[in-house]
Simulated scan of single mutants.
Amino acid sequence: MPFHLSPVSWLLVLCVVVQLVYAVYYFWPFGSRHVAETLEPDSAHEAERPVSVVVAARNAADQLRQLMPVLLNQEYAKFEVVLIDDRSEDETILYAQQLTQYYPNVRLVTVERTPNNLAPKKYALTLGIKVARYPYLLFTDADCVPTSYQWLRHMARGFETGADLVLGYGPYAEAPGLLNKLVRFETLLTGLQYLSYAERGQPYMGVGRNLAYTKQTFMATKGFASHIRQLSGDDDLLVQDAVQLGRQAAVVTAAEAQTVSLAPTTWREWWHQKRRHMAAGNRYRFADRLRIGTFILANGLFYLATLAALVVPDPEWVALAGAWVVRTSTALATYAQASRRLHDRQPLWLLPALDAGYFFAYFLLTASLVLYRNPSRWK
């Protein structure tokens, strides 16, 4: 009997093949790579590579009380903290002023108003970068906390390879509830993509929770000028501009080199956050959009093809089962490796459901951006 598959089954097979290609070329080499997790102090070299840690804060007094003690106790030979108070109405400015009185390496920048039609956070960061004393810049958000006092040292060592940008990872803290699990899974998947692509020499984004670049790189891209009116993109679009100019990126994934923040606690908050981040995607280079889009499309079509295969007369159960076994085992192996490499523990037994839920949500988010474009302003 001649071998025959329906168009839907062939689509399933094609989707699985595409995902296998991504896993073999990008994800598995990244997940299986062994990297040094500890660093010995090197005061001489650290003094030659002073770092300005830049933090923009708006109404974040409580968060800064968690963050600043960890920043100020970083084990690094020479660094400063540039703290930007962006139009705060709480005690942020008072707390920041107190810090400057006791710590000479804390510098305060105050933003009283943002010019019309400029993205507030990008404007605030630009002012902070302009006053930064040192040529190496390390960024995190006010609601993040480094996982160790070695964070700065690990991230700064990324520049030793001659890189202009250093891409770090910023997981969310584990908490009860399905939303937290979905947010943490999405963060793992996003980290797996942008970090594995970067290790293949194809960097396309970073996250502002844990990102470093040279001041020279910021000046070469003219700062945020190409997207200063767009609310999102102070991290990924700057990386896009830098890579376009030939700047090189290094990847740092050590457990001590991460920053942790609290995940959104409501579905509405997460939805608006994702819409804001995804809105920057249309400014990515075509090659990056094609690479990311092909992966997302292959995953999304896999689930749609599965539904189609179940409703047609006489489903081809052997093809469907085979595609699911291969795809599920590939995905679990990929996520397990990424979880180990990024030190971001995930509930492996729940990953298939989280994977399906994420790509369904991604479809809805994409549709909402096409139909309604109004990303929230940075608060």
Score class of each variant (00 low, 15 high):
M1A: 11
P2I: 07
V8G: 09
W10R: 12
C15F: 06
C15N: 13
V17Y: 03
V18M: 05
W28G: 03
S32H: 10
S32K: 11
V35S: 12
A36C: 03
D42P: 15
S43N: 11
A44L: 12
A47Q: 15
A47I: 03
S52A: 11
S52H: 10
V53N: 09
V55C: 11
A56M: 05
R58I: 03
D62A: 15
Q66L: 13
L67P: 13
M68D: 13
L71V: 10
Q74L: 03
Y76N: 10
Y76V: 07
Y76W: 08
F79P: 15
D86Y: 00
R87I: 08
E89R: 10
L94S: 09
T100E: 14
T100M: 14
V106F: 05
R113M: 06
T114Q: 02
N116W: 05
N117V: 03
K121S: 06
Y123H: 08
L125E: 01
G128C: 00
K130T: 13
A132L: 07
A132R: 04
R133E: 13
Y136F: 15
A142H: 01
D143P: 03
D143H: 05
P146C: 06
H154D: 08
E160I: 04
L165M: 12
L167T: 04
L167Y: 02
G168E: 03
P171H: 12
L178Q: 09
L179Q: 07
L182I: 00
E186S: 06
L188C: 06
T190M: 14
T190F: 11
L192Y: 01
Y194M: 01
R200D: 14
V207A: 06
Y213E: 05
T214H: 07
K215D: 08
Q216R: 14
F218D: 02
M219A: 15
A220C: 08
I228Q: 14
I228E: 12
G233I: 11
D234M: 10
A242G: 14
A242V: 13
V243S: 04
L245S: 04
R247T: 04
R247N: 11
A250R: 02
A254F: 09
A255Y: 06
E256F: 02
Q258H: 05
T265K: 15
T266K: 14
R268I: 00
R268A: 14
H272F: 10
R275A: 08
M278Y: 11
M278T: 01
R283Q: 14
R283F: 15
Y284F: 15
R289E: 07
L290E: 06
I292N: 02
T294N: 01
I296A: 03
G300S: 13
G300H: 04
T306V: 07
A308H: 03
A309P: 09
V312A: 10
A319P: 13
T328L: 12
S329V: 15
A331F: 11
Y335F: 15
Y335P: 00
L342H: 07
H343S: 15
Q346F: 01
L348Y: 07
L348I: 11
L350T: 01
P352C: 07
D355Q: 10
A356D: 00
G357Q: 09
F363T: 13
L364H: 01
A367E: 01
S368G: 00
L369Y: 01
V370T: 11
R373Q: 12
N374F: 08
P375K: 07
W378E: 10
K379N: 14
